[in-house]
Design a binder for these strands. Structure first.
Length: 261
DNA sequence: GCCCAGGGTGTTT
DNA sequence: AAACACCATGGG
């Protein structure tokens, strides 16, 4: 059956940081150095997403979200409204290193600035396939200095980035392992790095390792829980809590339900 | 000028 | 364990 995918809702929901919009067209870059992938696509014609295996997987097209949303609808009226607000959001399958590093950069930061910093880091340190520039590999960033990274605007996160990249190079972080071991073991491995806490770990596991039970608690989700789900926690939302989190995050951040803006 | 942003660390109560 | 200062940086 035909799966729902809304490019704008998905690509602006704060899970990826290398998608740009020009008029009706989205350009997405994903992946490391020379193996970077580039997609130019519009909502009117998404045939490439269906035919190209990389992008088919990137947009998680093998998962039937309508079944999951039906379960959410039974769970809570607010969650139902969040699903109806942006029913075309999907959890992306991103490169795990790119995702982890991006969310180390994201801490105490806003999406606009995160996007800008990551673009600079790719321009400065990413290798090219002669057309497009990829996200720098862990070896490259492990070999940089704090002052080099700070030129890209990462601020106090510079050492955190180096710590994380070094752990990946040394095999202390093995993404293949993070995709399969018990979720709390995966969290523990990531949080041994100085600069990775529970929120960054959950984002990396959800958006880079497709661990759908992870429930990242950022400042917005703390407001959601305090306002609509007092005395409840991630377990209330079940094995697909991460998807529920993404619908709630996007709803609370871009609608005026909590009178932002 | 202050406050906030997809937080985490270290210190003090 | 809970509260707090501090960490760079740009935008509101």
């Amino acid at each position: 059956m035909e799966q729902i995918l809304n490019l704008r809702e998905t690509l602006t929901s704060g899970q990826c940081f290398r998608a740009t919009q020009e008029n009706n067209t989205w350009t997405i870059l994903s992946g490391i150095d020379q193996s970077v992938q580039k997609l130019t696509v519009s909502q009117d014609d998404m045939t490439q997403i269906h035919s190209n295996p990389y992008w088919h997987n990137f947009f998680d097209m093998d998962t039937d979200y309508s079944v999951i949303i039906q379960e959410f609808n039974k769970l809570s009226p607010i969650l139902k409204k969040a699903c109806e607000y942006a029913p075309g959001i999907r959890i992306l399958n991103q490169n795990p290193w790119e995702s982890l590093c991006s969310f180390v950069i994201s801490q105490n930061n806003n999406i606009k600035r995160i996007t800008s910093i990551i673009q600079k880091i790719c321009e400065q340190f990413g290798k090219t396939d002669s057309n497009n520039r990829g996200f720098p590999c862990a070896d490259t960033l492990a070999g940089t200095t704090e002052s080099q990274l700070k030129l890209c605007g990462v601020g106090f996160r510079a050492q955190y980035i180096i710590n994380t990249a070094t752990a990946v190079c040394k095999g202390k972080i093995d993404f293949q392992e993070l995709k399969t071991i018990p979720i709390n073991d995966a969290r523990k491995i990531l949080m041994e790095i100085k600069g990775i806490g529970p929120k960054v770990a959950d984002c990396a596991l959800l958006f880079g390792c497709h661990r759908l039970d992870c429930f990242p608690m950022d400042t917005w989700m703390k407001k959601v829980m305090a306002t609509f789900f007092p005395s409840k926690d991630a377990s209330f939302f079940g094995k697909n809590a991460g998807i529920a989190q993404q619908y709630l995050f996007h709803y609370i951040r871009t609608s005026n339900i909590l009178n932002n803006n």
